[in-house]
């Protein structure tokens, strides 16, 4: 075999890109099942609730119900996809396929693996959100079209945070059964109580407290006014909610890293 000394440039940036790329390649192989759950499923929600409940409510205050529920479905699609990818999918890479062990035998650090996993989950989840926004646009259910791009960027940030929480849960899991807690006490409550279908303020106070712990509530309370009535949104609200979302992600990421480094490096 010819002996060429390769130019290896193992850097933080190269590692993160390489792992993101790895996930992208696998996703392309599993394109149709992935598209089905990440794009068609949120659209089913949109049609069912938008038209079904829309027929019951017709109006939500001044707004047509379809326009009202659309930002909620955007947020839920993002939340669900990011949470699923960073928890169960990441866990199967870590636990079943030993992908993390393989990667860590190369000159890659754990923080790069986790960062790439979160970025990948966020990318996939943003695509789900984009699909819902696209359908919303074509149905004319988005009054402020110029806000779609800012919403998409903000959605990417939120997805990254949801993914960090998923990674944290994954880092503590010792089997797939563990994720039934995650779906019962995190993913489903977010869907039901964070304001996807109606105002959080309709719930009893203790339910509201729970809802405002889940950062999807904050996301919906920024995305919905952005698409329906941007003038009602104050800068203070945006900053405060965004700060909460980012802190939530940072803490989750640190816990995920701490727990996984113990498991992978026998600390």
């Amino acid at each position: 075999m010819p002996q060429t000394t390769p130019l290896a440039r193992p850097t933080f940036f190269n590692s993160v890109c390489a792992i993101w790329w790895r996930n992208f390649k696998v996703w392309r192989v599993q394109f149709w099942p992935a598209i089905t759950s990440n794009i068609f499923q949120p659209l089913l929600y949109l049609f069912s609730f938008g038209f079904g409940l829309g027929a019951v409510f017709a109006q939500m205050g001044e707004t047509h119900y379809l326009a009202y529920v659309l930002p909620g479905i955007v947020a839920n699609a993002a939340f669900f996809t990011a949470s699923f990818e960073a928890s169960i999918s990441a866990f199967s890479r870590f636990y079943l396929q030993k992908t993390y062990s393989a990667i860590l035998a190369a000159p890659v650090k754990l923080v790069e693996v986790l960062l790439a996993e979160a970025l990948w989950s966020a990318s996939k989840a943003t695509l789900s959100a984009l699909a819902v926004l696209g359908v919303g646009l074509s149905l004319g259910a988005i009054p402020h079209v110029q806000m779609v791009l800012p919403v998409l960027l903000f959605t990417f940030l939120c997805c990254f945070v949801f993914a960090c929480f998923g990674l944290m849960v994954m880092a503590y899991a010792h089997g797939f059964e563990f994720f039934s807690y995650f779906f019962t006490f995190w993913v489903t409550p977010a869907f039901l109580f964070c304001g996807v279908f109606f105002e959080v303020s309709r719930f009893p106070e203790w339910v509201q407290t729970v809802a405002w712990f889940i950062p999807m509530t904050h996301m919906i309370h920024i995305v919905r006014p952005l698409l329906l009535a941007p003038e009602t949104l104050t800068l203070m609200t945006i900053l405060l909610y965004t700060a909460y979302i980012i802190s939530f992600g940072a803490i989750s990421f640190l816990l995920a890293h701490r727990r996984l480094s113990r498991r992978l490096f026998d600390k």
Binding site: V26, T99, A102, I103, V108
Partner: peptide
């Protein structure tokens, strides 16, 4: 711990990228 979903050559190429190989 190979990537079961990827092809033989993709497994090597992607692993090479972890080393920052061009």
């Amino acid at each position: 711990n190979l990537d079961p979903d990827l092809s033989v050559s993709e497994n090597l190429t992607i692993y090479g990228r972890y080393f920052g190989l061009e």
